[in-house]
Design a protein around this nucleic acid. Structure first.
Lengths: 245, 245
DNA sequence: GTCTGGTCGACTGTCAACCATCGACGGTGT
DNA sequence: ACACCGTCGATGGTTGACAGTCGACCAGAC
């Protein structure tokens, strides 16, 4: 789980975080399990669109293709299921998740709950370090939007929100975020809805950080929640529009 | 996962819920997987205290004892890990979770986030059916407290909070609640902290429902959050007190 | 006496092969 | 058109085996 979290973090760019490693070699990477590699491979395929929504994932075939045993694939399925990328139907197998408008709405409401709380925690603590971490994240959004790369902007946007959860100091909040959100975000394909103006994004987030900086947990939470709810409504509407496929 | 949810619900007494089954045989239970049985068996053992915190769970031994194969046990481990009852250390195995004060605090903050939003959703929807469902749950708390059975009161208390999440209409909020909370609650042993007066519990929850009934999402959320935070501080303090073990 | 190095058993991670059973599909008979 | 039936593919679960690691123990070197 910890590994999955780290991977996802990397996946959308927080590798650039300011973790300035201490003097020498300290931690040594945790022993990597094969099942995790399999999970990554499958996740990548799904998110990249190589496996379309609703696809039936056949254990044996994937095992053969990835060169691992069925047991390992099963393990990967379970992790992906926990991330919400795959649904398992007893006796029928695993399927690439199909998202409906209600799913999107639900997940964004979870986001509102989780991120709102995270913001409140940081605000209540008047955590300067966290605030500067968030400011850095905004800077990365700004850079991305200056370059005009809309996909990168979305990644950095998402990274900002993950930072928020990570910096809350509550590992479980962060866990939940990582488990539910990035997958969804990527499934949506980065272009369900278009920004009016890329430049506005950074400003919008700056306002959020200001709300947190105010030191009033309730206000901070409210700001983030509103942010999530707006996104929820826009995205869900867009999805419902397409869902007629 | 759905099954696990149902089981946990049963585990703390919502079997008494008002689901009055329709006429005849309708649903037929979903095909039950062996791994789920194993999960239940282990969970029960852990929660009942048969397996003490920190115990190393050895795959082969458990497999033999439960009469299933190692693969099945592994699957069970992963589910328990998702519920937070077990920690998996790569190459070293699975261990019964050891809770510290910070863990408790984290989980109660997750509760505040989740339940706060659930309350806000119900309030915003002015959902009469949900309100009456919650009222029923309170009634069960009252009955339990009248009987003086403090353990039963705790179960019904927890059931109330699960109802809140379930009735929010957001399955994912409910999922998160079920995954994080009941296990913790039970791990705490039902008696980390004593109620001053059992009778107060029902009243306290009645106030929560009134806040929801007001129809103001923010107020409803705030009430629940405060409720959770108070519990958090009390319980965490109690745990830290004992932790010197 | 403590630190180093090696041995050994225990356990996990993974694989391959196998079986019973369930579900979906397609053909058949009515 | 519809219900029945048999086949085929896939899952759920088992067994047995094996390499790599971890942890503990033991013995010798500094």
């Amino acid at each position: 789980m910890t590994d999955a979290r780290a991977d996802l973090a990397l996946a959308y760019g927080s590798d650039a975080r300011g973790d300035a490693e201490l003097p020498d070699l300290v931690p040594i990477g945790a022993p990597r399990k094969l099942a995790l590699d399999a999970t990554d491979a499958l996740r990548e395929q799904i998110l990249a669109g190589g496996l379309r929504r609703g696809t039936h994932l056949v254990e044996a075939k994937l095992a053969a293709r990835l060169g691992v045993s069925r047991g390992t694939i099963r393990e990967a399925f379970r992790m992906l299921a926990a991330e919400g990328l795959v649904e398992e139907a007893p006796r029928r197998g695993a399927f690439v998740v199909t998202l409906r408008g209600t799913d999107v709405r639900e997940i964004y409401d979870v986001r509102a709950a989780i991120e709102g709380r995270a913001a409140a925690l940081i605000a209540g603590r008047r955590d300067e370090a966290a605030l500067s971490g968030l400011t850095d994240a905004i800077e990365r959004i700004r850079v991305a939007s200056a370059s005009g790369d809309s996909r990168e902007v979305r990644l950095m946007d998402l990274a900002f929100h993950e930072q928020l959860c990570a910096l809350s100091g509550n590992a479980r909040l962060h866990d939940i975020f990582v488990r539910y959100v990035p997958a969804l975000q990527t499934l949506l394909g980065f272009d369900v809805l278009r920004y009016e103006s890329l430049a506005d994004i950074a400003d919008e987030h700056r306002a959020l950080v200001e709300a947190i900086r105010s030191g009033q947990p309730a206000a901070a939470a409210a700001a983030i929640e509103r942010h999530c709810e707006e996104a929820r409504d826009k995205v869900a509407e867009a999805i419902d529009g397409i869902a007629s496929t």
